[in-house]
Amino acid sequence: MKDYFKNVWLGVWTALIGMRITIDHLFRKNVTVQYPNVHPKDKAGWMDMPSNARNRLYVDMDECNGCNSCARACPVNCISIETVRSVPGDAPPPLASGGKRNLWVSQFEIDFTKCCFCSLCTEACPTGAIVMTTEFEYSSYNRYDLVYNFVKLQNSMSDEKIAEVKEKWAEHQKEKKKEAVEPK
């Protein structure tokens, strides 16, 4: 009998305690961040996005030497790089930081539908060409738009140039073959 009244009392009393807590919260400051109006990159208090946040990748084609380490480091194979070797005497322009290059990077594609934002590629890059940025608003209506070809985007090599270096390399190969055959 005692337990019965105690339980009834507890039921009412704990409900009242809960109601006191919720009514207290009713008049507190809200924490919602009105996202498109208040951007996490500007000022959103706790939700402020730090500068090292890992979002969309960016590749500086002036820095890329086409070594393919990022593609090898990628766990999901979202990076595909195509390079053309340069013929002697027609080396590509050196890196912006000064290093030598002997590969023409004719294609640098990152498939952002696959990318898992793990940042392993940025660690593997010897020249610091590939970095993660804080940009995250890049959704698209078409998933093929999410395959970024950085050669095209930055216009580091025109189509004609790519064709030209490819032809040059092919000719160079042919000559080499001829040289290899002729002494016989």
Partner: peptide, 15 residues
Amino acid sequence: LTIFEKASGGRLLYN
């Protein structure tokens, strides 16, 4: 999660 993000760059999947 914001503390994690400040340290690692990721909010949920940190690596």
